[in-house]
């Protein structure tokens, strides 16, 4: 059970959160401008790295706020927690 440090509430058990998949996958500004291939990649393709991975979490049973977590997918170590408005930390995918 991960201990995630909500930027607004502090450290809480994983069960208070929901996972939101890969972070920094922006919804395309104008989806109509995308080819089928590009749209399909937005819809269905996500990275699956071994190591640091930026992902979204939401503090569902707490403040209900979304934030980003940099987590090592091998060790499950949380390397950084940051707000959606913060820049992505160095050294991640």
């Amino acid at each position: 059970m991960l201990l995630l440090d909500c930027p607004w509430c502090g450290p809480r058990d994983e069960t208070e959160y929901h996972y939101g998949g890969q972070a920094h996958v922006r919804y395309p500004q104008v989806p109509a401008d995308l080819t089928d291939q590009e749209w399909a990649e937005y819809l269905f393709f996500r990275d699956n790295p071994e190591g640091p991975f930026a992902e979204r979490w939401v503090h569902s049973t707490g403040c209900r706020r979304w934030f980003n977590v940099m987590r090592d997918t091998t060790s499950y170590r949380v390397l950084a927690v940051y707000r959606p408005t913060d820049p992505r930390p160095e050294g991640s995918r």
Partner: peptide, 13 residues
Amino acid sequence: LDWLEEWLQTEWP
């Protein structure tokens, strides 16, 4: 509700 919040917070703040 979660779905609406997700879009508001992450895409269209």
